[in-house]
């Protein structure tokens, strides 16, 4: 039965990790705009003259 102490402790650590991830995701504003990221993903990356030079800067 004592294995269960270890198991619960371990699973709790994992779960707390997820809670931390959730809090981080809220704080970093990931849920603030649920529309544009989906659209943005479909955007063709245009490698124009300017955007290439920008990366150099």
């Amino acid at each position: 039965m004592s294995a269960i102490f270890l198991l619960i402790g371990a699973s709790l650590l994992v779960a707390l990790g997820f809670l931390g991830a959730f809090i981080w995701s809220i704080k970093s504003g990931q849920y603030e705009d649920d529309y544009s990221p989906g659209v943005r993903m479909l955007k063709d990356p245009k490698q124009s003259y300017q955007s290439q030079t920008n990366k150099g800067e």
Binding site: D33, Y35, S36, Q50
Partner: peptide
Amino acid sequence: CSSCIYLLENLQEIAKGILDVKVNFGQ
């Protein structure tokens, strides 16, 4: 609309000096 996002986020293609545009559609 989504075209608005597309146009605005491509602003760097039509105006010199703009590096990056991110649109928050909801707000």
